[in-house]
Design a protein around this nucleic acid. Structure first.
Lengths: 212, 212
DNA sequence: AAAGCCGTGGAGGTCAAGATCGGCGTGCAG
DNA sequence: CTGCACGCCGATCTTGACCTCCACGGCTTT
């Protein structure tokens, strides 16, 4: 009953790859395993087997498990930040901006083979390197949103950051819920609904800080 | 250089406690360690030492590490759900309801020695038992909120659930951010700000589903 | 007051998983 | 044709954390 035979899944088993290509393949395999199992439950053996190589080659490309994880995490943090910034810059109509940004979160959660789990549902937040990266990307996204809010309302820096964190948080939480609940509401409609909620909330701020 | 001496921190060292009290003390010690270190980094030795007992007694009260964690998790899930339900039932004025509910999340995050981390920042979400509990309490909170929304607006069940998940998400995310950012804005004001945002957003829905 | 019992304490077993060493096959230069 | 170099694999080591076995001391009973 030992694991001897399940190596047939995705194995050229014996093909020699150039170094760069091998590295990318290893990253792909690692992503699948990390997304499916989480960091702790994922074993280096699993990743190697998924990639169709043996463990030593894995260690010839990455010094350790953490480095492998961080490489993926950096990649997808960058991706999220870029999506959000692109969405914010895609228009000057603030309501459309809200829609585009929300939609960016939905797209991010839906695409990329579930890689969003590495950022939003990591089980390695105790590791300072991971915590730093996750907090940093959250902060950077919030700051990008906050800049727009602060520019178009009379709110202070701290206040607009609170709202920005909130808007990013809604997008992220609802997008994950929407994905997990097998999408009873179509994506367009969900984003539209959230946009209505958020836009009405935001649009009330321009002239007055916070009345009664 | 072995660790021999740091057992002096909180030790009656030798006191015999009634079973119930001992169990509570163990739960307290476990909570401190789990909150500070996370599940994986926390060692049973640490918990036993923190409580001033030896490992066998720990295992006489709890079958294993997971059971100990689940006991704490259940406790604090229950606590959150009760706080949210109490807040929702505290008034019939919907705007005050929003304020009370947001404030419940802030209070939950601020109090209880950081226990919210067990629910919102667990590093054991891959364990099905943990995942089930966390998802369940999120869903129950969202349903409680959703009931109020569905009752007072013309939105469908699915739509009001999306909004409810969003509102719970904002509260949770912003409360955590507020706590972590060493509170540059006083709690009352932060809750007030969020309430304004959310209430304006929600109050637009009563009569019409979602126009343009 | 003496003896037994029950719970406590420290030391050890087991096992999984991250990290590594000697052989092997392949492709190329001379 | 032959030797060399390079990348890959099977098998192994070690660490660390969860989880139990032999001595000891206070409380109860006659």
């Amino acid at each position: 009953m030992t694991a001897i035979e399940q190596t047939e899944a995705a194995r050229p088993r014996g093909t020699r790859l150039p170094r760069r290509a091998r590295r990318n393949q290893l990253l792909g395999a690692a992503q699948e395993v990390f997304v499916a199992q989480g960091y702790h439950a994922a074993a280096m053996d699993d990743i190697a087997e998924r990639a169709g190589v043996s463990k030593p080659v894995l260690y010839q490309h990455f010094p350790g498990k953490l480095d492998l994880y961080l490489a993926l995490l950096d990649q997808h943090c960058e991706s999220l930040l870029e999506s959000v910034r692109t969405a914010l810059a895609s228009t000057t109509d603030n309501k459309l901006r809200v829609y585009a940004t929300m939609d960016a979160y939905f797209a991010y959660v839906e695409d990329e083979g579930g890689a969003f789990r590495l950022v939003f549902e990591s089980d390695l937040t105790n590791e300072p390197a991971v915590r730093d990266r996750v907090e940093k990307v959250s902060l950077q996204c919030a700051e990008a949103i906050s800049d727009v809010i602060a520019e178009d309302t009379g709110l202070s820096r701290d206040q607009s950051m609170l709202l920005a964190v909130g808007l990013g948080g809604v997008s992220q939480v609802v997008a994950r819920y929407w994905l997990a609940s097998s999408s009873p509401v179509p994506r367009d409609q969900a984003v539209q609904l959230l946009t209505s909620l958020a836009w009405r909330g935001i649009a009330g701020f321009p002239l007055h800080g916070a009345e009664h």
